[in-house]
């Protein structure tokens, strides 16, 4: 356990020294502010750009619009940024050979993977918490969000989906030991999920549902029970990918 926390401390120190903390805090704060901002300003901008005289009947933005922006920006922009940030977790060490000495000192290989994954989870939690809280605060200030359903459950869906993508990235990054390996594998995985989503039957279990369902959860068109299978499957797959990574790394030449 000592070893685990020792290496975890190193991961933390490294992430701060390589500006990951700074980037996550700044970028996800920006995203958090952008959501309500975009929701509020879009009708105004549309009005300005319309030719004079056009009569527009634009509805006033609501709390839902703000959250729709959240579920558009965070999965698209936020998750991409996050994967990019943590896409070199393993390859950086493997390429430089910084693990060789520590492994011969008796560092358990599973510790390497689990601490790195745990560190990424911590950062993802921070990222989601930040942009969620900021969007929540602005939305609460400008609009009434009491009509929205399952606000927190919807956010947890996105959070869980992020955990899976991070695990896939970590596996790809370890398996191919190149900075682009993880990104590529995750990208291909996403395409796979999108292709699966073409078939309506997959709706009940596709992990991608977790990223696309939140708006419907908010309006009440979907209930948490509807994404239950996706939820569990995503958690299960996450675990599978972490275990696969550990198993692979145990036999890897460093």
């Amino acid at each position: 356990m000592n070893q685990w926390f020792g290496f975890f401390k190193k991961e933390w120190f490294e992430s701060v020294k390589t500006y990951k903390l700074l980037l996550v805090v700044v970028i996800f704060s920006i995203l958090g502010i952008l959501n309500p901002f975009t929701a509020k300003i879009t009708p105004v901008l549309l009005e300005q750009f319309m030719p004079a005289g056009t009569i527009m009947d634009l509805p006033e933005p609501t709390a839902l619009d703000s959250w729709l922006q959240f579920y558009k920006n965070v999965p698209q922009m936020g998750l991409v940024v996050f994967i990019l940030l943590f896409s070199t977790m393993m390859s950086k060490e493997l390429e430089k050979g910084t693990l060789v000495i520590l492994l011969t000192k008796g560092l358990r290989r599973s510790t390497v993977i689990t601490t790195k994954y745990m560190m990424a989870i911590c950062y993802w939690t921070l990222a989601i918490l930040l942009s969620f809280t900021i969007t929540y605060a602005y939305t609460a200030f400008y609009w009434d969000q009491s009509t929205l359903q399952h606000l927190f459950f919807a956010a947890s869906c996105l959070y869980i989906f992020g955990l899976l993508l991070i695990a896939v990235t970590l596996w790809g990054n370890t398996y191919f030991a190149t900075p682009y390996g993880g990104i590529l594998v995750t990208f291909i995985g996403m395409i796979g999920l999108f292709i699966t989503a073409i078939f309506p039957q997959s709706k009940s279990w596709n992990p991608l549902e977790l990223a696309t369902a939140p708006p419907q959860l908010l309006t009440g068109d979907l209930l948490p029970a509807d994404v239950f299978v996706s939820y569990l499957l995503t958690l299960g797959l996450t675990l599978v990918f972490v275990v696969l990574t550990v198993v692979h790394f145990k036999r890897k030449l460093v």
Binding site: N2, Q3, F5, G6, F7, K9, K10, I101, L102, K105, G106, L107
Partner: peptide, 8 residues
């Protein structure tokens, strides 16, 4: 120090 922690 990191090495020392790792070697227990």
């Amino acid at each position: 120090e990191l090495c020392a922690v790792i070697t227990n």
